[in-house]
Design a protein around this nucleic acid. Structure first.
Lengths: 209, 209
DNA sequence: TCATTTTCCAAACAACTGTTTGAAACATAC
DNA sequence: GTATGTTTCAAACAGTTGTTTGGAAAATGA
């Protein structure tokens, strides 16, 4: 148990945490390799470059997430249009997230932060990489949304999807910090799952509006 | 007309645009001073440091925004509880934004990008600076929300406010890019105002849920 | 006009960045 | 054992970063 992990694994673990905390440009390879307790040169040896390391971090998360999301979408795709509603669509996104969080501590927060940073990367390398490699799953989600709510125009679907993602990413990315604020102000503790469950009615109401 | 602006003004203009586009760490002082057509040393001369320059950029935006927001809140604060609803609260935020956008081109997109980046700054220097200096306006907004919807718990108010901000910031920060996607996919042009008006029913429904 | 303060500017500074190198250490197979 | 391929490591590389410096230029006030 807790065997010494491989160098690549250790680098990925340290990198994803530091990238989520500080951002890509603000995290130097020396910080990563120090935390991972590996030699500086091993990043370039195993991953080629810092850019490739960033992509590798995303790949590990997104393969896991999109895999589970695809299963959720498959069951929804077999339903009739009347059976599809906003809540079911939301849970198709949230269930894979919660599953990730069970396997790895703070996975949701880290993952959402990374997504937020990828989105902020307006120069777009990373955003393009992510959408080109994993965009097809989002397209399937969009089609289910249209199927469940045929009275909405394509534009409305498109934008409401982004409003929803905005709430999700923004809130869950900051859930650590926000939870602390909430605990200080209202003197009660909150779990990520509680925060998410609080979101469902808000988002569902908006999607149906 | 179009007199040569002061050095500080030119630096602020170049900086806010570049910070919004690329981020703080990704934007060097040399890039800023080149675009502003001023000497490199003038940033440290006029602002002291890069960090102070970032704060100055935020100050210029936030003084403008919170000033106008405060006026909107004042009229709401004179209303009876029954008159306050989600739509009015949303317009209290949105009207100052639209006013800014009229004065300065793409101001909404730039402003929201900056806010998103400040929020992502989890180390927190900037976030703390912003909340400490301008947080009281947000507190007034929260109180109005509570007044209008007394059936909601403090927790619900707190979180729904953040869901709303997430949608707003996320969507409007990327509105340039998203508008392009939307125009390509659905072959119709959109204005920022249209995007915002699309958001109102979504957000209002969620807040009332 | 002269004296004083403010602003500008080219050059240099030390610190840090991602990446490369070549040899050492290790592992694997024969 | 030797030979072969893989992985680690300290050191150095060239480039970029924010900041400082000291003198020139401009502006200000008497």
């Amino acid at each position: 148990m807790t065997k010494t992990e491989s160098t690549q694994h250790r680098i990925l673990d340290a990198a994803e945490q530091l990238f989520a905390e500080r951002g890509f440009a603000e995290t130097s390879l020396r910080t990563i390799t120090t935390r991972a307790k590996v030699n500086l040169a091993s990043v370039n040896y195993h991953f080629g470059s810092k850019k490739s390391l960033i992509q590798a971090v995303f790949d590990r998360f997104l393969q896991d997430f999109t895999g589970e999301l695809s299963v959720e979408l498959l069951t929804l795709e077999q339903m009739k249009a009347e059976q599809i509603d906003a809540e079911k669509l939301l849970y198709a996104l949230i269930n894979p997230l919660l599953a990730m969080d069970k396997k790895r501590k703070n996975a949701i927060s880290i993952f959402m932060r990374l997504l937020g940073r990828a989105y902020a990367e307006t120069q777009g390398h990373l955003r393009r990489y992510v959408t080109e490699k994993y965009g097809h799953v989002l397209v399937r989600f969009t089609h289910l949304f249209q199927k469940g709510y045929p009275e909405l125009t394509n534009d409305q679907i498109f934008w409401r999807l982004h409003y929803m993602l905005g709430s999700l990413i923004f809130t869950l990315a900051g859930s650590d910090a926000l939870r602390q604020i909430s605990e200080a102000d209202f003197n009660r503790s909150l779990l990520v799952e509680d925060v998410i469950k609080e979101m469902i009615p808000f988002l569902a109401a908006g999607m149906k509006a």
